[in-house]
Design a protein around this nucleic acid. Sequence first.
DNA 1: CGGAACTGATGACAAGTGTCATTGTGATGC
DNA 2: GCATCACAATGACACTTGTCATCAGTTCCG
Lengths: 211, 211
Amino acid sequence: MKSSTQTLTQKIRVVLAEDQSMLRGALAALLSIETDIEVLGSFPNGEQALQAVAKHRPHVLVTDIEMPMMSGLELTGRVKELYPETRVLILTTFARPGYLRRALEAGACGYLLKDRPSEELADAVRQVSRGARVVDPQLASEIWSAEKDPLTDRERLILRRAGEGETTAELARSLRLSEGTVRNYLSEAISKLGASNRIEAARIARNKGWL
Amino acid sequence: MKSSTQTLTQKIRVVLAEDQSMLRGALAALLSIETDIEVLGSFPNGEQALQAVAKHRPHVLVTDIEMPMMSGLELTGRVKELYPETRVLILTTFARPGYLRRALEAGACGYLLKDRPSEELADAVRQVSRGARVVDPQLASEIWSAEKDPLTDRERLILRRAGEGETTAELARSLRLSEGTVRNYLSEAISKLGASNRIEAARIARNKGWL
DNA sequence: CGGAACTGATGACAAGTGTCATTGTGATGC
DNA sequence: GCATCACAATGACACTTGTCATCAGTTCCG
């Protein structure tokens, strides 16, 4: 009764969180084909998925990272905190060491990339439900070699917004800072990232998953 | 024998093109569940898909737009040119009138968004195979109201590269133009798009599918 | 043929951006 | 208690960017 492994008579109960409808439906279909997996429900955002986890207490939660309302990383943290029996498998497009690190810190048991073959998904779900860790091997090795985000909170915030086209003056106004201060933060960020202007700096930071 | 509609004994033959493995596999699974649809193969880029179309002459080609090697729009054009019997259904993330217009111009019969429910896919495939047009209704109405790309080739090229962080000087050098000319193109693009700087202009153009 | 549109250039000015040195505050940590 | 760091500011300087008027060659269309 209190065994944590799945027996043949006991299906692996899964909840899905993925914001893109087509993929959400297709993944549900894919997992439902497996005889040892049962999809309890699939949801387009973190909040709904969290409620479903509260209600169904699934063995495994499969979740995307970038979703509206509540991100997959936030969701992972909440689930680990409230329902630690539920194992979390992250399924994302982004091969960014930054995301992987944050996912593991939040308590995820697996990190699978969307450009892996679809056959790996059911397998990953099984492994995670058994208590094993499943992390993309290429990414796992990068996490140690990868430098970590050198930006401070303020630098990150300002760089993100500057990278979307907000001008120094607009940023200063909306953050109640002087223009000089804003330019100082940007200058710091640019030099930390080895860029030659705010646009390139924002691009670099985005690619590393730091924004 | 020469009837173009599918009878009950004749499955709809489908080829899939989608660069993200997980989605590709999941979509294939989703379509294979349908008893009247047969997935002949699925491919990660336009070139391989084109070869598959040449070989199998499917009723329907379901393709993404943004793919390496050959984009879905280019693929659509080639297929319509070489194998006009094969109907093309575009399946994409992007609700951009610009993409829809280009897709229809290239000869696509359908345009379905990835954030539509997965149940609609099989239905869209059936409709398209019957010769019907399937276009997202919201998007279809936007296409008429939507303004078309006001940028010239040069403006577009320069704006794209500027939006990735290249400076005026770098652009001038690599395009063999004077810096003044580069700034003129950017200034024109910025004013045409109603932006207040190159970053915002690039963002606007990207969102409309013009870059 | 003449006009329109695209491309490319120049010069000048205003505005915005990136850099640096320097100063100060508060919080965290050994 | 003193060092370190994030946060915030100032002033000054050089450089980049955005704007505008203006000109000229090419191509294409009616």
